[in-house]
Write a protein that binds this DNA or RNA. Structure first.
Ligand SMILES: NC(=O)c1ccc[n+]([C@@H]2O[C@H](COP(=O)([O-])OP(=O)(O)OC[C@H]3O[C@@H](n4cnc5c(N)ncnc54)[C@H](O)[C@@H]3O)[C@@H](O)[C@H]2O)c1
Ligand SMILES: NC(=O)c1ccc[n+]([C@@H]2O[C@H](COP(=O)([O-])OP(=O)(O)OC[C@H]3O[C@@H](n4cnc5c(N)ncnc54)[C@H](O)[C@@H]3O)[C@@H](O)[C@H]2O)c1
Lengths: 222, 222
DNA sequence: ATTTAATAAAGAAAAATATCTTTATTAAAT
DNA sequence: ATTTAATAAAGATATTTTTCTTTATTAAAT
């Protein structure tokens, strides 16, 4: 919060650092597990040991959510879970559709873990005649040609791309045309979209590159 | 490079920033595509436009690989591809095995794209009797009980974990016991391993959290 | 041949992020 | 009741990463 020249409160977009956002689901997952184990309180230093990160970073990350702990005791596990779920939006419903029902697309559709984050894939699209009309874990696979039709009726903000890289851009264009708010892209390409559309890339090669680089450093150090 | 007190060159581990490493596969993927389109030269500013990143960052990233460009011309596409492949290790062979042949594990086994990065999954392990003995795209699925046996004979440095979160730690312990160098973990848990073992987490919830957070910010801005 | 404009490369500055330090709080131990 | 030790919280510092600025290079234009 910041005072403007006129003395009126101006809501400064106190953006939480992305690295902190990325760590938060780990806190939540661990806390849920600890709760199931019957734990009532947990301190930041102990969370830090569990997750192998700096204890002050845990405190700072949790502070972003508004959570407060008590010295000598720590945080109330149940409360912290609720606060994190609320902060991350994992306690709300997020509907998504997915385009490209291949190996990865099918895996994502059948992934039970998205429930824990409030996300639900409600429809799938493909161009393959053999897949169109089928059903994967209750999620119907539609003809991509009917996308605009259907997508317009459903009010969905998240579109997932799991087509080959070659068709990813045209799929993105399609999504943008329909008015999608966020695109989760698993194809190894950089999508060009208008600035108001959120794009989150999950590029598998980046992770592999980090692994190979660390292996190389390890080798050099020997 | 740094001079030591004795005047002898000390190879300071000039670690390339991880963010740079993570961007490099994107350069490579794009360059391969441009080469296929017949392009001979490409400048950093044009690469930057393609990938929507800062042009000086492109130059800096590429400089880490040792690549040099010429003013007014840019980089030689073919050369740059080779340099990047060499730098990332994508032109070498990296054998891996995978534990957990469920939806995600199967998708990874069947993923053709790993070839582009030199990685090959040579064996899979599971505890499910129905899966043991089968074959996925030429990759045999073994009984996990025989893991130690087989893993010892194959000389593999990378282990991929795609089991449910609940069993991930015990799988990691198993891998460590065998002497694995790097673990690529897709289960949403923090693994505890000795410091000499590389762990790369690919946590799906982190990506989702970023998307939901950005959607929330978008909503607030309205 | 000379000028111009694009660009790589190196360096400086800024921004973002992580870590360290200090202070205050508080539950448990004495 | 007092002391002690653990810890949250806030602040300061350090590190990392990105962006900006300057300089030098060079192919193309004049
Ligand atoms: N398989 C993996 O584990 C994995 C991992 C990381 C990233 N990826 C990426 O995810 C994407 C999909 O990979 P995959 O292994 O599932 O491939 P896949 O070939 O199994 O699946 C692709 C699917 O997309 C469909 N498709 C193709 N063109 C389409 C279009 N224009 N519109 C709609 N559907 C279309 C195909 O019919 C197919 O069902 C690729 O970009 C890949 O690089 C895959
Ligand atoms: N499906 C996805 O798209 C997706 C995406 C991101 C992350 N993940 C994560 O990847 C992991 C696997 O997800 P999934 O959807 O493929 O689950 P899944 O249930 O389809 O597959 C899990 C597999 O692991 C095997 N398994 C269980 N315990 C084992 C053990 N102790 N040793 C060896 N094998 C064992 C099971 O038999 C099964 O084949 C989970 O941790 C999940 O959170 C999945």
């Amino acid at each position: 919060m910041e005072k403007s020249v006129l003395g009126v409160e101006k809501r400064k977009s106190v953006a939480v650092p992305e690295p902190a956002i990325r760590r938060m689901p780990s806190y939540l997952t661990l806390l849920r597990q600890l709760r199931n184990d019957g734990l009532e309180y947990i301190s930041a230093p102990r969370l830090a040991v569990h997750l192998d990160i700096d204890p002050t970073q845990v405190v700072k990350d949790l502070a972003y959510t508004g959570a407060t702990g008590r010295p000598r005791i720590g945080y109330v596990v149940a409360d912290l879970i609720e606060i994190l779920e609320e902060f991350l939006g994992f306690n709300r419903k997020h509907e998504a559709f997915i385009i490209g029902v291949g190996f990865l697309g099918s895996a994502l559709i059948q992934y039970q873990g998205f429930r824990e984050a409030g996300m639900k894939i409600v429809a799938a699209f493909d161009t393959d005649k053999k897949k169109i009309g089928t059903d994967i874990a209750g999620v119907p696979v539609f003809d991509l040609a009917k996308f605009r039709d259907l997508a317009g009726r459903l009010h969905i903000t998240i579109g997932i791309i799991t087509t080959p890289a070659a068709s990813a851009q045209q799929i993105a264009d399609l999504m943008v045309g329909w008015g999608i708010k966020a695109i989760w892209n698993f194809a190894p390409v950089s999508l060009k979209v208008p600035s108001h559309v959120i794009v989150q890339n999950t590029h598998i090669y980046s992770n592999l590159a980090v692994i190979l680089n660390k292996l190389e450093q390890l080798k050099k150090a020997e």
